[in-house]
Design a protein around this nucleic acid. Structure first.
Lengths: 167, 167
DNA sequence: TCAAACCGCTTGCATTTCGCAACTGGAGAG
DNA sequence: CTCTCCAGTTGCGAAATGCAAGCGGTTTGA
């Protein structure tokens, strides 16, 4: 499975992990949307991923160590997907990518407000967000949110507020 | 050509631009390797891109506004590709991606030393590098390098030094 | 108790993209 | 005049993509 690499360049190796149109969107939905189950990822996808492609990407992301998969103890047929440290560490990459896309591409207001907040928050906000993800996905305890709301809640609230005013 | 977008999310739109295994490598070779011609990109590619794929990607990158193409006045059959402001603005994204890949993937020492310097240099170094790229590709004058060497020269020198010691 | 909805996928199949190798017409150099 | 270089192009088999339908099992709600 660990096939040959085209080169040992960090950018190339990164592209070998998520150099396709879907993998990074799945990670985005898990990171920012808090999705953990197959159906949540399938039905919640803004872009409409097909189930076979989702299944295939989840499998390879698990094989690559970007995700882990375990059965849901409360629901025998559900599987829970969790982020790993490498995928949590993508937060700054997603922030940079979101900032670039927001500046140069025809984004919609409501779907880019999260990117704006993440950009404005800077490395401190990213670190806080990553700590919350570690708690949620890896069980690593963190301090409670400074203002009582998690970073994801704040991003989500901003998204919903923008959506309602632009509707 | 400006077909439909799957969504207005900045991450998704970014992936629609370079969500494949080659486009970002071409931009990387132009940004860090200083390549401007088809043959330079074809023969200099660490990863061995095929000529039809290179031609196809250059065409779509031009159509998307990430590159411009013009004939070489000194050599009638040569074409010169130039970065545009959006592609120059990818420097922070490439820095973040390189830093991530360097930390989590099996990179080689010589091919990741550039990523390390870029990470250590931080936003100031990125801004300096982007100014040099604007001068080189867009004709926007900038101040001479503070220490007499361009950022790309410094990155390249570090790469060559690492390569010779690990050979 | 039993049907309906939901669970994570899998399968079949048509379309698109990828990628190798060979090749093209034209220009530059000696 | 010929050899090399130039930016691609063409043909074609292999692989990936994507749509729609289906699968065996589980949970839910009446």
């Amino acid at each position: 499975m660990a096939g040959e690499h085209r080169s040992g360049c960090p950018i190339n190796l990164s592209l070998e992990v998520f150099g396709d149109k879907w993998s990074l969107l799945i990670l985005r939905d898990m990171i920012f949307g808090g999705r953990r189950h197959f159906r949540e990822l399938l039905n919640g996808s803004q872009e409409g991923i097909a189930s076979n492609i989702l299944a295939n990407r989840l499998k390879t992301l698990v094989e690559l160590g970007m995700l882990t998969r375990r059965p849901d103890p409360a629901h025998k047929q559900k599987a829970i997907y969790s982020l790993t440290e490498p995928s949590i560490a993508l937060v700054p990459v997603l922030a940079a990518l979101g900032a670039w896309g927001r500046r140069w591409l025809p984004v919609t207001e409501e779907l880019s407000v999260r990117a704006r907040l993440l950009e404005e928050g800077g490395p401190d906000l990213w670190a806080r967000f990553m700590a919350e993800l570690r708690e949620e996905h890896l069980g690593v305890p963190t301090t409670p949110p400074p203002d009582g709301r998690t970073v994801r809640d704040r991003l989500q609230a901003a998204y919903l507020a923008t959506k309602s005013t632009s509707a």
